[in-house]
Amino acid sequence: GAYRMKIYDRDELRGQMSELTDDCISVQDRFHLTEIHSLNVLEGSWILYEMPNYRGRQYLLRPGEYRRFLDWGAPNAKVGSLRRVMD
């Protein structure tokens, strides 16, 4: 299947937008971000990790809009890595 997600540095799907279609071992290295404040999962399911290298707390992201970090259940906006959930 296809995988696509848009990430934003501000809440409510605002601010600088970056797009992912594959795994990202370090959000900071690739996008120069340490925080993601909202996101829109367009295709596929993903796991968001608090730390790089797929470590730390993890949150399942199904397709849909997440307008603030509380929407995916996190206590803050800190994001380290993102990985696709393969079928």
Rank of each mutant, 00 (worst) to 15 (best):
G1Q: 11
G1W: 08
G1C: 11
G1D: 08
G1N: 14
G1S: 07
A2D: 14
A2S: 14
A2T: 12
A2K: 13
Y3N: 14
Y3E: 15
Y3R: 12
R4M: 07
R4A: 06
R4S: 08
M5I: 14
M5G: 01
M5L: 08
M5V: 09
M5E: 00
M5R: 00
M5Q: 00
K6G: 15
K6M: 14
K6D: 06
K6N: 08
I7R: 02
I7D: 08
I7F: 15
Y8W: 13
Y8G: 08
Y8T: 05
D9A: 06
D9T: 12
D9S: 11
D9R: 12
D9P: 12
D9C: 12
D9Y: 15
D9N: 07
R10F: 13
R10Y: 14
R10V: 12
D11Q: 09
D11T: 11
D11Y: 05
D11W: 09
D11L: 13
D11H: 03
E12F: 05
E12P: 07
L13F: 12
L13P: 03
R14N: 10
G15K: 04
G15L: 03
Q16A: 06
Q16F: 13
Q16L: 07
Q16G: 05
Q16V: 08
M17Q: 06
M17T: 04
M17F: 08
M17N: 03
M17I: 14
S18V: 10
S18H: 12
S18C: 12
E19W: 12
E19M: 04
E19T: 05
E19F: 05
E19Q: 14
L20W: 14
L20M: 10
L20V: 14
T21H: 06
T21M: 07
T21Q: 13
T21A: 11
T21E: 08
T21Y: 11
D22E: 10
D22P: 01
D23R: 00
D23K: 01
C24Q: 15
I25A: 10
I25K: 08
S26M: 13
S26R: 13
S26Y: 13
S26P: 01
S26I: 11
V27M: 09
V27I: 07
V27E: 01
Q28G: 11
Q28M: 07
Q28I: 06
Q28K: 15
D29F: 07
D29C: 10
D29K: 14
D29V: 11
D29A: 11
R30S: 10
R30V: 12
R30Q: 11
F31I: 15
F31D: 15
H32C: 11
H32R: 09
H32Y: 10
L33I: 06
L33D: 13
L33Y: 06
L33H: 09
L33G: 06
T34P: 11
T34D: 06
T34G: 05
T34W: 04
E35N: 10
E35K: 10
E35V: 05
E35Q: 07
E35S: 05
E35F: 11
E35M: 05
E35C: 06
I36L: 05
I36C: 07
H37S: 11
H37W: 06
H37A: 08
H37P: 05
H37F: 07
S38Y: 02
S38M: 02
S38C: 09
S38F: 00
S38W: 00
S38Q: 01
L39Y: 03
L39N: 04
L39A: 04
L39S: 04
L39Q: 09
L39F: 05
L39C: 08
N40A: 09
N40Y: 12
N40K: 13
N40R: 11
V41I: 11
V41D: 00
V41T: 03
V41H: 01
V41L: 13
V41C: 10
L42I: 12
L42G: 15
L42C: 13
L42Y: 03
E43L: 05
E43G: 07
E43V: 04
G44A: 02
G44H: 04
G44F: 01
G44R: 02
G44D: 01
G44M: 01
G44L: 01
W46F: 12
W46C: 01
I47L: 07
I47K: 04
I47V: 08
I47R: 03
L48Y: 05
L48I: 03
L48C: 05
Y49F: 07
Y49E: 01
E50G: 03
E50H: 02
E50R: 02
E50L: 02
E50S: 09
E50W: 00
E50N: 04
M51D: 06
M51S: 10
M51C: 08
M51K: 13
P52T: 07
P52Y: 00
P52S: 10
P52Q: 06
N53M: 04
N53Q: 07
N53T: 03
Y54G: 02
Y54I: 09
R55M: 12
R55V: 06
R55I: 04
R55N: 06
R57E: 13
R57L: 06
R57C: 05
R57T: 05
Q58I: 02
Q58T: 07
Y59K: 08
L60C: 08
L61H: 01
L61T: 03
L61G: 03
R62W: 04
R62H: 13
R62M: 04
R62C: 04
P63T: 07
P63M: 08
P63W: 02
P63K: 09
P63D: 06
P63C: 04
P63I: 05
G64T: 03
G64M: 03
G64K: 04
G64W: 01
G64E: 04
E65D: 06
E65N: 08
E65W: 15
E65R: 14
Y66L: 02
Y66I: 05
Y66R: 04
Y66N: 04
Y66Q: 02
R67P: 05
R67I: 14
R67N: 15
R68Y: 13
R68G: 13
F69C: 08
F69T: 14
L70R: 08
L70I: 12
L70H: 14
L70Y: 04
L70T: 14
L70F: 05
D71T: 07
D71P: 08
D71S: 05
D71N: 06
W72V: 02
W72Y: 15
W72D: 00
W72R: 01
G73V: 04
G73C: 03
G73I: 03
G73R: 11
G73S: 07
G73A: 05
G73L: 09
A74D: 01
A74P: 02
A74Q: 03
A74W: 15
P75K: 12
N76Y: 04
N76K: 11
N76F: 15
N76P: 02
N76R: 08
A77G: 10
A77C: 04
A77W: 15
A77P: 14
A77R: 09
A77Y: 06
K78M: 09
K78N: 10
K78H: 04
K78D: 03
K78Y: 07
V79M: 05
V79T: 06
V79S: 03
G80Y: 01
G80N: 03
G80F: 00
G80S: 03
G80Q: 05
G80M: 08
S81Q: 01
L82E: 03
L82S: 02
R83C: 12
R83N: 01
R83H: 15
R83A: 07
R83T: 06
R84G: 04
R84V: 14
R84S: 07
R84W: 03
V85Y: 12
V85T: 10
V85F: 13
V85S: 13
V85E: 06
M86K: 06
M86V: 09
M86S: 14
M86W: 13
D87F: 15
D87R: 03
D87Y: 07
